[in-house]
């Protein structure tokens, strides 16, 4: 169970209080008649799904109820930073590769 810092509450809370809400910083294109099928498909479905640092959305659903973003390493599941929805991804958080992990013996 992950331990997640809600940037609104300012507290580390257990994962079961939160709901993951998919990749972050995906802009909904519009207006509809100016968006191609390909752009719409990309918005709906295409994801970086990186092995390494990912910017993702969470909601503190059993807490303050608010959405926020996180940068997390998908190899180690360690959170690099969490920040409020609407704020840009902190530049120092990548996007970057995961710390090189040597093949485990």
């Amino acid at each position: 169970m992950l331990l997640i810092r809600c940037p609104w509450c300012g507290m580390d809370r257990p994962e079961i209080e939160f709901r993951h809400a998919g990749a972050a910083h995906i802009t909904r294109p519009g207006p509809p008649d100016r968006v191609s099928d390909e752009e719409w498909a990309a918005f709906l479905y295409l994801r970086d799904n990186p092995k390494g640092r990912v910017a993702e959305r969470w909601r503190h659903v059993h807490g303050c109820g608010r959405f926020f973003n996180a940068v997390r390493d998908t190899v180690t599941d360690v959170f690099v930073v969490t920040y409020k929805a609407g704020e840009p991804r902190p530049p120092e958080t990548g996007p970057g590769e995961s710390q090189p992990t040597e093949a485990r013996p």
């Binding site: 519009g30 509809p32 719409w40």
Partner: peptide, 13 residues
Amino acid sequence: KPDFIGKRGLMRP
């Protein structure tokens, strides 16, 4: 309406 949730989706082939 210029837009609503699903409007662009409905326009797909």
